[in-house]
Design a protein around this nucleic acid. Structure first.
Length: 426
RNA sequence: GGAGGGAUGGCCGAGCGGUUGAUGGCGGUAGUCUUGAAAACUACUAUGCGCGUAAGCGUAUCGGAGGUUCGAAUCCUCCUCCCUCCGCCA
């Protein structure tokens, strides 16, 4: 959520920011118009309430002295009715204002390149050497099926399309990746591991920005009004919703493994093959709460922490900075990590590391007190995948495939697979 | 699922229609005392919103949403969460 004071104080700046990220600047004018009405109305209501409060006190006094208060009483009756009527109008304005503000995306950070879409994203750096093959490298889904470790047909039978069954070594590899990532981030990067609910309420989704705008992307349990999480960002960031954090505890760093559930509405026909785009996938997520002045540095570090996973696994990747037009709804600045897929001869997103500034903190009421005597301020929140496990699985199959159809296990992963160095179909 | 009990400020805990934003305690901050510290004592110590350059003024907030009333932390209705007992269950 944007600061209403910024919306009021510098509407032109907000409009410019919205334009850059392909938002609708006219919403700012709409806000101003409703806000002005609201303020006028509110001032009137408060003035009436002040009168009522004063009179009520007097009535109490009169009654205690057993004097007659009926004239005042009658007067206050009509005043109270007036207030009630005005408050109905006020509530309508507030709800309009609220919906409007909750629908506004975050403003891009000043350091983000202006651009229309993914074509204008900027490669920041790349790492690793793309493997050279003396044969035509196969796509991961084909490898997985040949090795008997991925089963799409049966997953579609028991659920529907865009689900997968991991079998045998496949299941073990997925589990090994999860453990490896969690160990790396907890033991070497200082994150606290959390295991959260996978179902969350609407307040949580509003806090991180998935609601109200992106309801169609979520699986919802209608009877209970709970939603399956689309990312661990939701439960982990909301861990501290409506809290005031101790400044000495910042930065607070969490890592969480969770399955993620996405309806993928509107992506029909996109990535239909393989495990790149599934309704359910595993992800290890990094989440940070920081003081505002530290968030840029923490953002760089978080990105580096995610990169470390790819480096240890020996997977070639590049870091891309998203331009203003490609930024996610809540993000002020984002780096995508893209891993190399030999079968496609292309890099594909495997992690997205974002600084949300105070956008989520304001929605979710996450604050800290810089000093004992100062007022609480909103923290900055950041998060990034460290990494998307399914896509990491796919990248390993593709990058480590051998001509005989076997898969070489990256060294860092071997301890998690009982020392296995290579997997071949049985 | 059935029967009961509860939710109040950073925390504990009073209040149960009329200066109650809310007694008291703990914690915190500042000061007095002390060579220093502890102890003791004194003062201060919630947040949102509006108006105002500011001091400040107004208003709202006692789990949430409604209602009754001139006036609600206190009464009524619905909802959520927590606790105890029974049932069921991994």
């Amino acid at each position: 959520m944007l600061d209403p004071k910024l919306l009021r104080g510098d509407p032109e700046k907000v409009k410019a920011g919205l334009k850059n990220r392909r938002g609708d600047p006219s919403l700012v004018d709409e806000f101003t118009a409703i806000d002005e009405k609201w303020r006028k109305l509110t001032a009137g209501i408060e003035e009436k309430k002040a009168r009522r409060n004063a009179a009520s006190e007097k009535i109490g006094e009169l009654k205690r002295k057993k004097e007659d208060a009926s004239a005042l009483l009658a007067e206050m009756k009509t005043l109270s009715d007036e207030i009630k009527e005005l408050e109905t109008k006020q509530q309508a304005l507030e709800s309009d204002l609220n919906n409007l503000v909750l629908g506004l995306p975050n403003l891009p950070d000043g350091s983000v390149p202006v651009g229309e879409g993914s074509a204008e994203n900027i490669e920041v750096r790349s790492w690793g050497e793309k493997p050279a093959f003396s044969f035509k490298p196969l796509p991961h889904d084909e490898l997985g099926q040949r090795l008997g470790i991925l089963d799409f047909a049966r997953a579609a039978k028991i659920a529907r399309s865009r689900f997968v069954v991991y079998r045998g070594f496949g299941a073990a590899l997925e589990r090994a990746l999860i453990s490896f990532m969690l160990d790396l981030h907890t033991k070497e990067h200082g994150y606290i591991e959390v295991l959260t609910p996978l179902l969350v309420n609407a307040d949580s989704l509003r806090g991180t920005g998935q609601l109200p705008k992106f309801a169609e992307d979520l699986f919802r349990c209608q009877d209970d009004d709970l939603y399956l999480i689309p990312t661990a960002e939701v439960p982990v960031t909301n861990l501290h919703r409506d809290e005031i954090l101790e400044p000495e505890k910042l930065p607070l760093k969490y890592v969480a493994y969770t399955p993620c559930f996405r309806r993928e509405a509107g992506s029909y026909g996109k990535d239909v093959k393989g495990i790149i785009r599934q309704h359910q996938f595993n992800k290890v997520e990094l989440v940070k709460f920081t003081a505002p002045e530290n968030s840029p540095a923490e953002h760089e570090q978080l990105t580096a922490d995610a990169e470390k996973v790819l480096q240890k696994l020996g997977l070639p990747y590049r870091v891309v900075q998203l331009c203003t037009g490609d930024l996610g709804f809540a993000s002020a600045k984002t780096y995508d990590l893209e891993v190399w897929f030999p079968s496609e001869g292309a890099y594909r997103e495997i992690s997205s590391c974002s600084n949300f500034g105070s956008f989520q903190a304001r929605r979710a009421g996450i604050r800290y007190r810089p000093r004992k005597e100062t007022k609480p301020e909103f923290v900055h929140t950041l998060n990034g995948s460290g990494l998307a496990v399914g896509r990491t699985f796919a990248a390993i199959l593709e990058n480590y495939q051998q001509e005989d159809g076997s898969i070489v296990i990256p060294e860092a992963l071997q301890p998690y697979l009982g020392g296995l160095r290579k997997f071949s179909a049985i």
